[in-house]
Amino acid sequence: MLVIENLHARIGDEDILKGLSLTVKPGEVHAIMGPNGSGKSTLGHVLSGRPGYEVTAGTITYNGEDVLALETEERARQGIFLAFQYPVEIPGVSNMEFLKASVDILREHRGEEALDAVTFMKRAREACTLANLDHSFLKRGVNEGFSGGEKKRNELLQMMLLEPSLAILDETDSGLDIDALQVVAEGVNNMRNDTRSFVLVTHYQRLLNFIKPDYVHVLADGRIVRSGDASLALHLEEHGYAWLDDEVA
């Protein structure tokens, strides 16, 4: 279970998150919507321990552990996965090597047996097929020269192989064609179970037609200003965020 309480975070001397609280229980799917620049990606970055982000107040625990005390890689080993809004290109490092290194370490941490190369290749190819990426993407440099949509599907591919217990998808649906959107939705739906949780950051209600969320939150100016069920997303789609200003003020 993820528990975020009164989280304040800044970049340089700019306060971005200003008292954000959120609880995600095992098996739940939460959607976070909100205007550009409201702090949605910042939340993901803080959860992943990205350099440059300073937490000035508040707490984050995951399954009772103090997340903020953990190194980035330790958070991943605890089962937290962030699909980046802007995945990073790493020329020269093949996707395959990268995925193998990652899967190896996560399996080791979970006390699972190491996968031999053949089994791993088989799984990687299957995940590729599910993410609708040609197998040749395994040989290419990590995200190197991938199109916007291909980068998003490569994040999906990683999520499927790494099998996290909590996945935060930061606009994984943005810039995708209709078919690719279905692919992402199916990827998430196939992985949904009683213990695995998802946080979907999205601008589009459309995604939520395919992945039915348990909760929808509105993040504005660094805080969750509204929470509801799936119908909140429909309301936002129709009315935008302006009506919230009056209520927040």
């Binding site: 992943s48 321990g49 990205r50 350099p51 190194e71 980035t72 890689e73 958070r75 991943a76 080993r77 996965f81 962030l82 980046f84 995945p87 990073v88 790493i90 020329p91 020269g92 490092v93 093949s94 090597e97 990268f98 290194a101 990652s102 370490i105 996560l106 941490h109 440099g141 990590v142 990683q158 790494l162």
Partner: peptide
């Protein structure tokens, strides 16, 4: 590149291992 290192670490890879991967990547071509 710190962002590359972070991306790798966010997948559970240690800082040392990330350095190895990135160095290898640099000469692979």
């Amino acid at each position: 590149d710190e962002l590359s290192v972070h991306y790798l670490r966010s997948r559970g890879i240690s800082r040392d291992e990330a350095q190895v991967l990135l160095s290898f990547g640099f000469v692979n071509e």
